[in-house]
């Protein structure tokens, strides 16, 4: 369903992604781990086209962007709607309430009418456990609550894939659980997800597959049980020893 072929990304002289090849099946939850600077964020951002890859082909459910040539803006906008992005720092719109944050995409991008958008946003906020906070502004919410609004905001666009970039690493430890729970529920509903995280418990409990990245390439991929107890590659082993 998701396919990444020969993905390269360069910032100036720094080559960050050096030919990523990856397939993800529909409904799978893939956790991406790897040392700092290995290109995990950059890869997710390329899928959301917040970064323009230097070259490579990405495709999601038959929609394909080939970055060896120039890609029209229109195609990028359409492709972007296939993925929902959840940011480490939430990036909620501070001048809008939780409800307005979630409604914004359907209202402005999909041109839905206000009532439909409002109802849908309300249901999504209830789903992430914030039914009683819909009229709160981000500044009035805890980090965990803000991140759940962030997830609802991304879901409101009905993406095919949800991308999470360290969604819990800015949170106080006691708030991590509530966000992970929402993510697990989403996984159980069959959402295709790519998650960069250091939460190994989440990887064990919710992921079908764990990918280890280092220096801009995929080093190893396997199911969580295998990769954590019996890593094939030396570099994977070293990394896992370091973080555990």
């Amino acid at each position: 369903m998701i396919s990444i072929q020969g993905l390269y990304k360069q910032f100036g002289n720094l080559e960050v992604l050096k030919g990523i090849n990856l397939e993800v099946e529909k409904g799978n939850v893939v956790v991406i781990i790897g040392p700092s600077g290995s290109g995990k964020t950059t890869m997710l951002r390329c899928l959301n086209v917040l970064e323009t890859p230097t070259k490579g082909v990405i495709s999601i459910e038959g929609n394909t962007l080939d970055f060896s040539g120039t890609v029209p803006k229109k195609n990028i906008a359409a492709f972007r709607r296939l993925t929902g992005m959840v940011f480490q720092s939430y990036n909620l719109f501070p001048h809008k309430t939780a409800l307005e944050n979630v409604m914004e995409g359907p209202l402005i991008v999909k041109n839905e009418n206000k009532d439909t958008a409002r109802k849908k946003a309300q249901i999504l906020l209830e789903k992430v456990g914030l039914g009683d906070k819909i009229d709160f502004y981000p500044a009035q919410l805890s980090g965990g609550q803000q991140q759940r609004v962030g997830i609802a905001r991304a879901l409101a666009m009905e993406p095919k894939v949800m991308l999470f970039d360290e969604p819990t690493s800015a949170l106080d430890p006691e708030l991590v659980g509530e966000v992970l729970k929402v993510m697990k529920d989403l996984a159980n509903e069959g959402m295709t997800m790519m998650v960069v995280t250091h939460e190994m418990r989440f990887a064990r409990e919710a992921a079908n597959e764990v990918i280890f990245m280092d220096q801009g390439v995929v080093i190893e991929r396997n199911n969580p049980e295998e990769i954590f107890t019996n890593p094939k590659e030396e570099r994977t082993r070293k990394f896992l020893n370091m973080i555990q």
């Binding site: 959301n48 917040l50 906008a77 972007r80 990036n91 914004e104 991008v109 999909k110 905001r153 991304a154």
Partner: peptide, 15 residues
């Protein structure tokens, strides 16, 4: 991050 959050839900530059 505000620009990126807007783009990520499919908004255009003017939006």
């Amino acid at each position: 991050g505000q620009w990126e959050a807007g783009y990520s839900i499919g908004m255009s530059y003017p939006q």
